[in-house]
Structure formats: structure tokens, C-alpha cells
Nucleic acid binder design. Structure first.
Length: 815
DNA sequence: CGTAGGCATGGAG
DNA sequence: ACTCCATGCCTAC
């Protein structure tokens, strides 16, 4: 340590650096204080008595359990809160370790410098501890001032007393997180104290004002509620490796701890094992490069119990480093887990090459996995990823929304990957990777994550998880998911608002959406056809008599519908009424079969390149601009970041000029040119697509069809002809136009294919989606069996076909 | 053609 | 205004 001169030119007192150790800057930082003039300057010394720089862990003197070094938190919580003691985070034993505070007499003629280095704007009372000069005894009065007669073994009372004393800035946002008003703690009478007349709402300001590199940390506590507090895990943020004398300066430094973590996951399992805490609180970052920059969201929220068990399982001391909620990308097949930059740089080996290095990480069963730890350049920065995590993720039965926890095994430094399932009843991070007992729930989650089927079956935790992974696409590849994956086309034909639901109309991007609390229900599949007169109608089959009835196009049917429900045609509201439609004219089974089979032929084949374009155009034309909005609202239903990639602002093409189909826009039965054209296009394209698919299926399944199905392909063509008599006419033009533009719409097609794929399993926000809008879209799309042959079908841009040829060429070039 | 790698983009904080 | 990061998207294999 040695001695040095005070940096205050007016003082220049030579003092021992040890002697000058102090702490308690307004920020909660440690600072060096000149006992001569009271100037504070940075010489940050942490609680070296208890802080193990190696592991950050220490052993409780009573219970002998390893506990995370809560030195900073201890000081913050207990000394700031006038306990002046240290509490074992495991057994909650308290030890009074109040160090004497030297009542410094500051010479009045020496100006006090309240800021010496790196922008500490003001330094208020700085209680100085003096461990060298033991002669400076801690007066009883002072001790009482500090402890305020709070019994050190009564944390709850202490907190209550603090509350009563208005030492807490404000009621806790979260029951488990409180932010003490630090400024209050520095207004304890002291020779160095000066009045702090500022408003009490200082913590936030303080945090924000302390973004200077030298004091880049704030204070956050993680403490249970007064009534239930059993222990605490240090929740204080620590600055960069100040104790090691290294300072990280630079513009990138910023205050990463503006506030406590928003929420803490639910507590762990109920089992009370020993005295270990089950309170899941964010732990302060362990040692590491730049650990002070770790966002609280990445702080490991590991209960003491979990830690103990994990430490026991691995027979080593486990230091939680950080955790991350798996995104859809992380959990997806691609096998790349994006590492938070700060975490990667803090706890993973430094890498200079983009290719990175292989890194071995142990799971909680001591199984070793090798990942490639690498980075990609990104906006003058880096994006760190772990590659090849899929086997590990799968082994642990993790999916998007679950949490992976990275820890370090001491003293070997071996990285350890653990996990925590989001559901309350799920195994905690200490469970075996294969011990997932949530298979059934998983299925439920998949099925209900989209809220599209049976929201009532979702547990609170599942809903919570659904919220957690909002805006994240889940790529489900298991069988459960596949069973429930349907296309937009199919969804539109099936979705209905819940029967008794009262919608709440909200505006999203200027479009009205009706929100329903209830999940949508599946409606009855109907067939939309056009009569020779051009009039559109809907055909529905009675569930009882199986007769087909004509219905107005704008009627939405529930999943079960019988003739008795045919209020639009009372003459045929009975099953006894004769059927108007000759089933032989409508190969409905073929159509249904076709729809079903579309699931397995989502991707365009080589000869399907054109139809895929038609798909896109159909989707775009039918949904108009509403699709992106809707998709954005429904998040995982296919939100894209690029809308109409081929369309520009001011584009007057049919897609861009078509108003959203939501309520208040064009009526489903609107006969305006735009709507008619859209319907014409859509119908033509859809029929073309169906026809092609039918033909493909026929070719592939000709044998089994011949054996079991008397329906033939000509029937299907007939079906197409029924609903769109002029389809063939449009088809030719589609082909021509489609060939000429080729890639121009191919882009849009690909996007639309994705957009058009509605995965019910994965859309947590679906229930909030405007069902009415969806229904309208459905209606528009379905009713769009306009009689006219589409003559501009394959034109993604431009109102009329005549002027679109050149335009498409240009678009193709753009592409 | 399908997939993986790598970078780009844009939403969110 | 800026950074981070989830994921889109292009390209190479």
C-alpha cells in the first residue's frame, strides 16, 4: 500500500493509502478519502477482507457452506442500512463486523475536493473506515448512529424500520427487489457530511449520473420481502476490476444497471433442503473481464439451494456467471446460441479470429460438450455465438423460453452449462438433462403457445413463457407441432371468433383490430364459388344430413353447422329440404383432400416455382398490406422485417393500393375495381395452385387413389371449373407473366410462403390478434372467387397487367 | 435443391 | 443516438 499525497493541491497531505480507505460514495462505490481534507478520489478498494478475487466465494463460519461473496451487497445492504455486519447468504447467520469509522476533522481552511477523478460529480458524506489505526475507536454513539439500534439478527425488522425511516426511496417495484436510497445513508452526521437537499428520488438519477467510467456502477439489492426474507444473495453491482487496478475506460462504457431486474423468475422447487435459500434472485456478476457491463437480465438467478446441489453434483465450487433465456434462434435447428456480448467477453476466452475456438463446456451431469465459440463482425462490434449447441440443447430438453445458465467450476475454471425450464414445476437447473418430466406439458405448451386452440388449458407459467418469448419465432419441428401446423389458407377457412366473445377494438398501425379475450375457435370449412351470374356464394355441408347448402359469402359458420342453422335460407333450414347442389359438380372431397395435402407440399418444387409465385401473389393480393400488420401483431405467425420487398413508397400496384382488409376498410362484398381485381387474382391463383397440386398428388398417389378413391383428377378440375370457370384463361397469362418476371416475385414468394404459414403452436399472441380482421381477410380471400379470369394475376406490382411487364423486369433486376 | 455459414437488418432497450 | 441481438437473407457448398 504505502503512502501518497493527497491529490488536492491545497492539501497534499501524505497519508497512507490504507489509512485513507473509505467507502460510501453516493454511488455506493469505494473511494479513497483524504483524512486531511476530505477529498475523495478513486482508489477503489473492495471488501478485500471477504472478497475472494479468484472465486468470489467464501465459507460461512457457522454453517461452513460456500456462499457467494456478497461483500459489496453486504456492505451495501447492511452497512448502508446500518447493520454494519455481514450475513451469511446461506444460513442467514449474521456477524457484526462493524469497522470503526474515523471521525475525520477536516481543516476548514482546506477546500474539499469532491471530485478528483473521472467525473464523480458530488460526494456527500463519506464514512471512512480505518482499519489501520485501531486507536480510532468507534464511539458508542457513532455505533448507535450506524446501527440505529437495529438488531442484526432481525433483517425484516430492519427493513421495516428503514421503511419507517423513509430510508427506502419508494415502495419496491418488485417484492423481491428494493433499492435503498443510498443518499440517505450518506447523510449520517459526519464531519464530512454536507447537506443533501436534493429530492429523495435520487437513486435513479444517481445511477444515471454515474455513468462515468470511474464509477460505473450503481447499487441494486436483491432482498426478499421483509416478511419472508431468509437470506439474500448479493445483488450489488460491482464496477470493473478496480481492485485489480485495471480500469476500463472508453466510450463503450455505460451504466448497465439503471434499475433492478424487472422480475425474478419464480422461486425454485418447494423442497426445503437445509437452510439453503430458495429465493431466486439475480446474483451479481462473478469475476470476469468487463463484468460490470453485464446487464441484469443476464445475471444468474440461481437459488442457493440449486447452487449447493450443483456444487455437490460436480464436486466443485460453482460460480454462476450468467444466464440467458433461449430465443427461438438459440433453440432452433441452426444450433447457434447467441451469447450476450458482455458475457462472452467477460467469461469466455478472448478470441481474435472470427472462427473462434472450440470450447468445452460441462453440463450438470459432467458430460462434456464441445462448442465453437466464435464471433461475427457486426456493426463495428461483434456478435458472439456458440455453435453446435443443438445436441446439448436437445439433450437438456430445452426450447425457446427456457434458460441456460453458464457457470464456472472452481478452481478449475471449467465452464458449466446448466438450464432452467421456465415452468414452475419444471426441473430446476440442477435436474438432470434427461430428467425432463414435462413431456406432456411440453405438448400442451406447443399446442397452446399460440393461444389458438385452447387457451384455458394453458397454465399461468405457460402463458408467462408465451409472453417471455413474445416476438420470438419458435421453429417447432416435433411431431406435435407439425400436427398443428396449418397454412394461412387453411386457417382462414377455419378460424372463427369465440362464440360469446365481445371484442375490444384496438388500433394497430392505423388499422382496427378486434381483440378477444377468448381463444379463437375453428369454424366450419366452406367452399366459396361463383355462380354463372358472377354472384359469389358460399357452400356449406350440413353435419347431419351432409347436404350442401348455399349461403351468403359473408357468413361465418361455427365448426358444427347443420341445416337448422341456415337462417339465411329458411327454405333449406331443415335437413329434409332437397339439396340444391349436385355433389358430382363439386368434387368437394377432392378439394378438401387437396387442402389437407397442401400441408405436405408447402415448399415449391422445381416445377412449382411458378405456383409458388402465385402463392405469394395470392397471399399478398388477398391480404394486402394487412398481412404484415397482422403478422407483426401475431408475432410468430410470420412477422417479417421486410414488407413488400419489391414495392416502393408510392407504389400504385394492386397490392400496395389495396387497403387493409380490416374492419372499416373495404367491405367483404365490396365491388370496387380494386377488390374485384384482388379477388379475381386470388381466386385464379389459388385455383391454379390447387390444380397443380392435385395433379402432382394424382401422379404420386395414383395407385392408392385408384384403389380407395373413385374420385378422379378430372373431377378436381371440374371442381376448379365450378368455382372459377375462367381459371384456364388466367393460367396461361400467369405462366407467361410469371416466367418473364421470374425472380422478381420470387423474393416475395418466399417471404409470403413463410408469412402464409401460420403455426398455431407457436404464436403466443394469436389470441390477441384481431380475429375479426382475420375473419375479414378470410372472408375476402374466400369470397374472392370472382368470375372474371385474372388477366394480371402474376403481376406483383402495377395496377394493370399491360404496364407491368416492363416493371417486372425492373423488379427482377432489383432482386 | 437443401442446408449451413456469415453477414445485414431492424426492433428494442 | 447508440448498442445489442434476434433473425432475415444471401451465398456458397
Amino acid at each position: 500500500m504505502g503512502s501518497k499525497n493527497c491529490m488536492n493541491e491545497a492539501c497534499r497531505a501524505t497519508t497512507s493509502s490504507d489509512w485513507k480507505k473509505g467507502w460510501g460514495l453516493k454511488s455506493g462505490a469505494f473511494a479513497t478519502l483524504c483524512v486531511n481534507c476530505g477529498s475523495a478520489y478513486e482508489n477503489f478498494v473492495f471488501c478485500e477482507t471477504f472478497h475472494s478475487e479468484e472465486s468470489g466465494w467464501r465459507e460461512c463460519k457457522l454453517c461452513r457452506k460456500l456462499i457467494h461473496c456478497g461483500c459489496i451487497a453486504s456492505k451495501s445492504l447492511y452497512e448502508f442500512m446500518d447493520f454494519g455486519g455481514i450475513m451469511c447468504q446461506s444460513c442467514c447467520s449474521k456477524r457484526l463486523e462493524i469497522r470503526p469509522v474515523l471521525p475525520i476533522q477536516v481543516p476548514s481552511d482546506i477546500p474539499k475536493i469532491t471530485l478528483v477523478a473521472n467525473g464523480i460529480k458530488d460526494v456527500h458524506h463519506v464514512p471512512v473506515e480505518n482499519r489501520v489505526n485501531d486507536d480510532n475507536k468507534f464511539s458508542t454513539e457513532r455505533l448507535m448512529q450506524l446501527t440505529k439500534a437495529i438488531r442484526v439478527n432481525d433483517v425484516a425488522s430492519a427493513l421495516e424500520q428503514h421503511k419507517r425511516s423513509e430510508l427506502l426511496v419508494k415502495p419496491p417495484v418488485e417484492s423481491s427487489h428494493r433499492v435503498p436510497n443510498l443518499s440517505q445513508h450518506f447523510t449520517t452526521p459526519s464531519p464530512l457530511a454536507k447537506p443533501d437537499n436534493r429530492p429523495k428520488q435520487v437513486v435513479k438519477d444517481m445511477f444515471e449520473s454515474l455513468s462515468q467510467p470511474s464509477l460505473n456502477f450503481s447499487l441494486t439489492t436483491a432482498l426478499g420481502s421483509p416478511a419472508t426474507v431468509q437470506s439474500f444473495s448479493g445483488g450489488i453491482i460491482e464496477r470493473n476490476d478496480q481492485s485489480k487496478g485495471s480500469f476500463q475506460h472508453g466510450p463503450k462504457m455505460r451504466n448497465n444497471y439503471p434499475k433492478p431486474p424487472k422480475s425474478s423468475p419464480v422461486a425454485g422447487p418447494e423442497t426445503n433442503k437445509g437452510q439453503a435459500s430458495q429465493t431466486r434472485v439475480a446474483r451479481p456478476p462473478a469475476d470476469g473481464r468487463g463484468r460490470n457491463q453485464l446487464l441484469p437480465r443476464y445475471w444468474p438467478r440461481v437459488t442457493d439451494q440449486e447452487l449447493q446441489q450443483l456444487s455437490g453434483d460436480l464436486k466443485s465450487n460453482i460460480v454462476p456467471l450468467f444466464e440467458k433465456i433461449l430465443s427461438a434462434s438459440d433453440a432452433g435447428r441452426i444450433g447457434r446460441l447467441v451469447l450476450p456480448k458482455a458475457c462472452a467477453e467477460a467469461y469466455f476466452p478472448a478470441i481474435n479470429q472470427s472462427e473462434g475456438i472450440p470450447i468445452k463446456i460441462q453440463d450438470v451431469t459432467s458430460k462434456e460438450w464441445t462448442f465453437q465459440f466464435r464471433f461475427w463482425p457486426n456493426n463495428n462490434s461483434r456478435m458472439y455465438v456458440l455453435e453446435g449447441v443443438t445436441p446439448c440443447i436437445q439433450n437438456m430438453n430445452l426450447q425457446a423460453g427456457d434458460t441456460v445458465i453458464f457457470s464456472r467450476s472452481e478452481p478449475t475454471g471449467q465452464l458449466v452449462i446448466g438450464c432452467r425450464k421456465t415452468a414452475e414445476t419444471d426441473a430446476s437447473m440442477t435436474s438432470l438433462p434427461n430428467g425432463d418430466s414435462r413431456e406432456g406439458k411440453q405438448s400442451d405448451y406447443h399446442a397452446n403457445g399460440g393461444k389458438g386452440l385452447d387457451d384455458s388449458r394453458m397454465t399461468a407459467s405457460e402463458k408467462k413463457r408465451a409472453r417471455n418469448i413474445k416476438n420470438q419465432r419458435l421453429h417447432m419441428h416435433n411431431d406435435d407441432a407439425m400436427e398443428l401446423r396449418i397454412t394461412w389458407d387453411e386457417a382462414q377457412e377455419l378460424f372463427r371468433p369465440p362464440p360469446s366473445a365481445e371484442p375490444t377494438v384496438v388500433m394497430v398501425d392505423g388499422h382496427e383490430f378486434e381483440e378477444f379475450e377468448e381463444a379463437p375457435v375453428f369454424g366450419k370449412r366452406t367452399i366459396f364459388v361463383s355462380r354463372p351470374s358472377g354472384e359469389q356464394e358460399q357452400l356449406a355441408q350440413c353435419d347431419k344430413c351432409l347436404k350442401w347448402r348455399r349461403l351468403p359469402v359473408n357468413i361465418l359458420l361455427s365448426s358444427t353447422w347443420t341445416c337448422a342453422d341456415n337462417s339465411s335460407d329458411l327454405k333449406r333450414s331443415s335437413c329434409s329440404a332437397p339439396e340444391e347442389i349436385n355433389p358430382r359438380d363439386l368434387d368437394l372431397s377432392s378439394i378438401n383432400h387437396d387442402l389437407k395435402k397442401r400441408r405436405v407440399s408447402e415448399k415449391p418444387t422445381k416445377e412449382d416455382g411458378e405456383p409458388s409465385g402465385l402463392d405469394a401473389l395470392a397471399t399478398a393480393a388477398a391480404l394486402g398490406d394487412n398481412l404484415p400488420d397482422f403478422a407483426a401483431e401475431s408475432s410468430s405467425a410470420g412477422a417479417t422485417t421486410t414488407r413488400h420487398p419489391r414495392h416502393r413508397p408510392g407504389c400504385t400496384c394492386i397490392v400496395c393500393s389495396q387497403p387493409p382488409s380490416g374492419k372499416g376498410k373495404h367491405e367483404p362484398t365490396c365491388k370496387c375495381n380494386v377488390c374485384l381485381t384482388v379477388r379475381r387474382r386470388f381466386k385464379t391463383l389459388m385455383m391454379r395452385k390447387k390444380k397443380r397440386q392435385s395433379e402432382r398428388e394424382a401422379a404420386a398417389e395414383v395407385k392408392e387413389d385408384a384403389a380407395s378413391n373413385t374420385k378422379t383428377e378430372p373431377d378436381r378440375k371440374d371442381a376448379a371449373a365450378v368455382s372459377l370457370p375462367s381459371a384456364e384463361n388466367g393460367t396461361n397469362q400467369i405462366s407467361n407473366a410469371g416466367n418473364s418476371e421470374n425472380g422478381a416475385i420470387r423474393m416475395e414468394i418466399d417471404g409470403a410462403k413463410k408469412d402464409g404459414e401460420l403455426d398455431l403452436n407457436t404464436d403466443p399472441g394469436l389470441n390477441r390478434v384481431g380475429l375479426a380482421a382475420l375473419a375479414n381477410m378470410c372472408s375476402e380471400q374466400n369470397e374472392s372467387g370472382g368470375a372474371g379470369a385474372g388477366n394480371v394475376e402474376a403481376q406483383p406490382c402495377g395496377e394493370n397487367g399491360g404496364e407491368e411487364g416492363g416493371g417486372n423486369v425492373e423488379q427482377a433486376k432489383e432482386g
